[in-house]
């Protein structure tokens, strides 16, 4: 093969990949700090997340612009094309991750430090946080290593998270009903529960984009219908 390099395209693609790596790191840190702020109750962590969210948003804008330029100028095909399209799609998910992290941090700043003891006692909530972070890590690592293997089971993992979300919801409602949990805090915790579930969905999206980028095929999805909020036997 003769060494035609398409220097302009390669340089722009390299820059895109670098930007995406940075964006992924920012998202990872954001969600971690958000969970920390919830469990430790630190105002510093919460503020850090606000900053991160802004950085994520700005970087997303730049990446989107670069992707459009690449398409307009270089008519990319095959792997190049898939990388660019996947990157475009992932920036949405990563931006949402940043946004939800910020929402969680906002709530944390409001209900901490008073409720952080309560929060730490809720195993299911902690588990939700842990699973979510793990899924986001998995997807972003797969992206960094351009490896579609690890994301193959993400749909199943997401189903587990959905189930856990439903359980936690029922528990929160039950505890608010029998007054062992203040409605004020309980309502916020319900929101956080929802945010975690949505974050896990976005992690699965990222996994899907990574699979497409690497193999050309997307993950097979059979979406279970959300049957509305599980209200439980009390109602």
């Amino acid at each position: 093969m003769t060494g035609v390099e398409r220097k302009a395209l390669t340089e722009s693609l390299d820059q895109l990949n670098e930007n995406m790596a940075t964006l992924a790191e920012l998202a990872k840190v954001a969600i971690r700090k958000a969970v920390e702020s919830l469990e430790e109750g630190g105002k510093a962590e919460a503020d850090a997340v606000f900053t991160l969210d802004q950085e994520i948003f700005a970087l997303k804008q730049e990446i989107t612009r670069r992707c459009v330029d690449l398409i307009a100028l270089h008519a990319p095909v095959a792997r190049d094309l898939r990388t660019i399209t996947a990157s475009l799609e992932m920036t949405t998910d990563l931006d949402r991750i940043g946004r939800y992290s910020r929402d969680i941090a906002e709530i944390a700043r409001e209900i901490a430090p008073s409720a952080s003891r309560e929060v730490r006692r809720m195993d299911k909530l902690a588990k939700m946080g842990e699973l979510t972070v793990r899924m986001i890590d998995l997807a972003l690592d797969a992206f960094r290593h351009r490896d579609a293997e690890p994301v193959k089971n993400m749909i199943a993992e997401d189903d587990a998270v959905d189930d856990l979300h439903d359980d936690l919801f029922r528990e929160l409602v039950a505890r608010m009903a029998d007054r062992s949990l203040s409605p004020h805090i309980g309502a916020q915790l319900i929101l956080i529960n929802r945010y975690f579930e949505r974050l896990a969905d976005h992690a699965v999206n990222i996994g899907d984009h990574v699979a497409y980028m690497v193999t050309g095929q997307r993950l097979t999805r059979v979406k279970r219908p959300k049957t509305g909020l599980p209200l439980g036997p009390q109602y």
Binding site: M1, T2, G3, V4, E5, R6, L9, P76, V77, A78, R79, D80, L81, R82, T215, G216, Q217
Partner: peptide, 19 residues
């Protein structure tokens, strides 16, 4: 062929890396 070519040679040619 242009979105996910099966052969490495094809991919190399259509992405302009050789030829």
């Amino acid at each position: 062929l242009f979105e996910r070519p099966k052969e490495k040679l094809t991919e190399g040619y259509i992405t302009g890396r050789f030829g």
